[in-house]
Design a protein around this nucleic acid. Structure first.
Lengths: 348, 348
DNA sequence: AGCTAGATTGTTAGCGCTCACAACGCCGTG
DNA sequence: CACGGCGTTGTGAGCGCTAACAATCTAGCT
């Protein structure tokens, strides 16, 4: 019985060698760019490869070289703008370095999920992992997991022994707060992100530091959970404070820990009959694409996700290839984007 | 000279076999859940595996089975809410089916980028690819590429010979338009997405169909490019029309092809002194997380990204494992989310 | 008790590639 | 003219695993 068309296997290196009239080793040399191959031979091989549509078998290669050239990425909440952008940056950077990226998206951030993700990736032989772990508990779990390959955290803070790359969240918060003080506000209120998040902490820390450096006692922090709804609730409270007791710490400027909550704050203020920025200036963090079209356009802090991705991959590859040993901690600079929501009232 | 600690290789199946006092084949049988292994033997092997911290070498496995159990995903604009959510859905579904997912993110959607992406994935031996290709030109390029493995498109339309999974965009548009007509509006204006996008076309088609079925001549379509800015411009135009010539087709309801543009439209209307939904009702499409907090909360269409991901992976795996042959076209049902932006004025 | 089917385990041969080394030229030099 | 050296090519082994087959053992039956 004849072989069915299904059974034809892709050509192997031996097939190419036969076609080109050389040994399989010569084909291998051509493919890996070895210098000591005569130009004529190289051409014959190239032609044969082309003619047969040959592709190196990555599994066979990985087996003998012990290199899969695959990196894993573990991310929580990949649908959010920040993680999604970081993911893109990571993938592009990895591709440039000649690695394939395999992603695992986690929903809720349980430690078990993290372990499973690491196992899943390990089962496929990834050489290293970048973990986007913005919550303290994640980083903690990660550090205790002791993975069988290098791990770099993104937005995972620099307390632990893991190499990390983060945006300088604290600096971003400082920039916003200083900007608001410079605009003449006597103090700046803060709507923070959820507690377990390192980004929340760093942003709050930057805000607090600037106030204290200026001899201002920081007002009570309002708590949110990144969602527009939580911002809305905080905004209602702020609206109440802004209108009612003028005597206490006046509410004229608010630094909200992310843009989505800022959206909620803006809505609450508007509903409370408070003009932005006329009566209360509002600033956010992240610069999501919508921020420019908020009512009013939002002053915020932009992150360079491509840079974060590039530096994380570089750091990871350095560890994989044995060039780096220590747990380095890299910071990426943020950028303040000034828009109407904090413009001094004379212009508003 | 003693071997440095760096040189210790991970344990192999042979190591486990020796440790357990069986043959490597028995270890293999235990690992792949073969039924004919005595329980006692199985336990010995399990213990040995545990003790040595053994992991099957995926490259060796892939080499002999000719199965890498890896799928590729190609996506354009992964930072947007839609593609990012689809990506998450795909990844989770693939993991459940026992596959690893490798992602390639494309920036601008050139045909060359697509080809490179396919090559990149092919070089690592993926068994199939899901391509998130919302632009007509992508799907076209994809169909002509003739990849060496099955390809399923997501949001790639059903004109071509490629198997596809899409949200029923047209139905979503119909739901929105019917909802607006039912609220008593004489007609519905439309701000469309960019031209090359299948989603734009399908949404416009659904809108147009409903109007025509109701004997209404569709007003001129305003063109956008998904961005809030383009929505803002269209909104300015609509505001002008709404205020100026009451004689012509009145502007009382607008179906905007996505939520981000709807945000721009809302801003333009507000700046034009037009109340929403009092004077003009506005609806969007996508249900991005922010939509609920737009001024006012936006009526929109929600997509079940998890379902899209699950069905795409299922379809792809069916093709890979030879269960499916034909180019099937699957549609996922949308859901209308009604909010304040289209509430009849009596309630507004 | 003798025999056989079925369960259980072991043996062998590759999968397609790279690495180490051997072999074969060809050149210039003493 | 012989020889060393380098550039070029070929040969053989083996990476760690699974599939096919062979060998052994067990239990059930006559």
């Amino acid at each position: 019985m004849a072989q069915s068309a299904e059974d034809v296997r892709p050509p192997t290196m031996a097939d190419v060698a036969r076609e080109a009239g050389v040994s399989h080793q010569t084909v291998s040399r051509v493919l890996s760019g070895h210098p000591n191959v005569r130009a004529a031979t190289r051409d014959q091989v190239t032609v044969a490869i082309e003619r047969l549509g040959y592709r190196r078998n990555s599994a066979a290669r990985a087996l003998v070289t012990r290199r899969t050239r695959t990196l894993g990425v573990i991310a929580v909440n990949t649908a959010l703008y920040g993680p999604a952008s970081t993911l893109t940056g990571l993938e592009e950077a990895a591709r440039e370095e000649g690695y394939l990226v395999s992603t695992v998206s986690l929903r809720a951030g349980s430690g078990q999920g993290l372990k499973d993700a690491i196992d899943h990736l390990a089962a496929w032989g990834v050489e290293g992992v970048v973990a986007i772990t913005p919550q303290r508990s994640h980083v903690q779990a990660l550090a205790e997991l002791d993975a069988p390959f290098p791990v770099v955290t993104v937005e995972g803070g620099h307390q632990l022994d893991l190499p990390s790359v983060s945006l300088d969240q604290e600096l971003g918060a400082r920039m916003v707060t200083e900007h608001l003080l410079a605009a003449g506000h006597g103090t700046v209120w803060h709507v923070a992100g959820p507690e377990d998040w390192l980004e929340s902490e760093a942003r709050a820390a930057g805000w607090r530091a600037v106030l204290e450096e200026n001899g201002i006692r920081p007002p009570r922090v309002l708590a949110g959970d990144w969602s527009p709804l939580s911002g809305y609730r905080a905004g209602q409270e702020l609206a109440g404070l802004a209108l009612a007791r003028r005597g206490a710490t006046p509410v004229t400027a608010v630094f909200v820990a992310n843009d989505q909550m800022a959206l909620g704050v803006l809505r609450a203020l508007r509903e409370g009959g408070i003009r932005t920025p006329g009566q209360v200036a509002v600033a956010g963090f992240d610069d999501i694409p919508e921020a420019e079209y908020f009512p009013p356009p939002l002053t915020t802090v932009r992150q360079d996700f491509a840079a974060i991705g590039r530096r994380s991959i570089r750091l990871l590859v350095d560890h994989i290839e044995g060039r780096a040993k220590k747990a380095e901690h890299l910071l990426v600079q943020p950028q303040l984007i000034m828009r109407a929501s904090t413009r001094p009232s004379s212009e508003a």
